[in-house]
C-alpha cells in the first residue's frame, strides 16, 4: 500500500510594516492555504489531502515567523488517525516552528482524533527568540463517544521541545498507554477521552495566569493553568470532545485577543 507523504512550509517576513508570505512550499499530500482575513494577523491553514494519517505516513509542517511578524497557523479540519497494520511503523508528524525577534506565532491546530489501532509519533520543535511570543495547542480525542467510536488500543506519542534563545525551556512528552483503559486510573484521565495541552510563552506570560483561571471553569471540563519562567501552561480534560472544544474556543479567543481562524467554526 502506498504511504502518504506530505510537506508544507511557509515563511513570513515583514514588508512595509505588514506580515507577508515570503516563501511557500508544498509537496505530496500536504497543502498550505492563506485565506484572506480582515484581522491584523495572516492565517495559515495546513491541509492533509490524504484525509488522515495511518501507519508509515509522514507529514512535515513548518512555519517560520520572521522578525516582527505575527501569524496564526492552524489545520483545516481535525486530523484523523486511522488503523495502522501491525507490521507498520507508526505514522510520523514533524512540526517545526521558528519565531523571530519580536515576532508572534500562534500554532492552534484542530483536534487530533485517534481511531482503534491507530499509531502516531508526533514531534513539535520550536525555536523562538528571547522576546518572541509563541502559543502552541494540541487537542486530542481518543475516539468520539458521540459518534459511537470506542478505542481500546492505540499507540500515541506527542513530544514538544521549545527552545527560547537557544535553550530548551519547555518540554512536554505525552505517551499514552497501549491499552486505553489504563487512562481510567485516578490522576490519568479518570474515564475521559478528550484533553488538550496549551502553552503560551511571552515576556508577560506569567502576569496573565490569574486572569485565565476563571476561563477553565467550563461545563464538563477540568483544567489547570500555571505560570513560571516566562511561560504559561494549560492542560484541560473534557468529558466529551464537544465540551473540550466549547471550553477551548473562548479560552483561546481571550488568550490571543482575537477570534480563532474561520476553519475552527466550519
Amino acid at each position: 500500500m502506498q504511504r502518504a507523504r506530505g510537506a508544507a512550509a511557509a515563511r513570513f517576513a515583514l514588508k512595509s510594516g505588514r506580515t507577508r508570505i515570503a516563501d511557500l512550499s508544498q509537496s505530496g499530500s500536504a497543502k498550505a492555504m492563506l485565506p484572506s482575513v480582515y484581522g491584523t494577523m495572516p492565517h495559515l491553514v495546513f491541509v492533509n489531502t490524504a484525509g488522515g494519517i495511518t501507519g508509515g505516513d509522514r507529514f512535515d509542517w513548518t512555519v517560520e515567523a520572521g522578525d516582527g511578524t505575527a501569524i496564526t497557523a492552524t489545520t483545516q479540519t481535525a486530523e484523523r488517525l486511522y488503523r495502522a497494520r501491525q507490521a507498520d511503523l507508526p505514522g510520523e508528524v514533524h512540526t517545526t516552528l521558528r519565531v523571530g525577534t519580536g515576532a508572534r506565532l500562534d500554532w492552534v491546530p484542530q483536534e487530533t482524533i485517534l481511531f482503534e489501532h491507530s499509531a502516531l509519533s508526533r514531534r513539535m520543535t520550536a525555536h523562538m527568540a528571547e522576546d518572541a511570543t509563541l502559543t502552541v495547542l494540541e487537542p486530542i480525542v481518543i475516539g468520539r463517544r458521540a459518534m459511537g467510536e470506542h478505542v481500546a488500543r492505540a499507540a500515541f506519542r506527542d513530544t514538544w521541545h521549545i527552545h527560547r534563545g537557544g535553550r530548551l525551556v519547555y518540554a512536554d512528552a505525552l505517551r499514552l498507554p497501549p491499552e486505553m483503559r489504563a487512562l481510567d486510573l485516578p490522576g490519568a484521565l479518570d474515564g475521559s477521552r478528550a484533553f488538550a495541552s496549551l502553552v503560551h510563552i511571552a515576556p508577560d506570560a506569567e502576569t496573565r495566569v490569574e486572569g485565565m483561571r476563571g476561563l477553565l471553569d467550563a461545563p464538563g471540563v477540568i483544567g489547570g493553568v500555571s505560570g513560571w519562567n516566562g511561560m504559561m501552561a494549560f492542560r484541560l480534560v473534557g468529558e466529551t470532545a464537544q465540551a473540550l472544544r466549547a471550553a477551548l474556543i473562548p479560552l483561546l479567543t481571550h488568550l490571543r485577543g482575537e477570534a480563532l481562524p474561520r476553519v475552527w467554526h466550519m
Binding site: L174, R175, P177, A182, L185, P186, A188, R213, I222, G224
Partner: peptide, 19 residues
C-alpha cells in the same frame, strides 16, 4: 525518547494546587 506521561489529571492537579 521513551520519556512520557499519560497522567494528565495529575499535571492539572499540580496547577490547581496553586489556587
Amino acid at each position: 525518547d521513551e520519556i512520557g506521561t499519560a497522567m494528565v489529571l495529575t499535571d492539572i492537579a499540580s496547577a490547581r494546587h496553586e489556587a
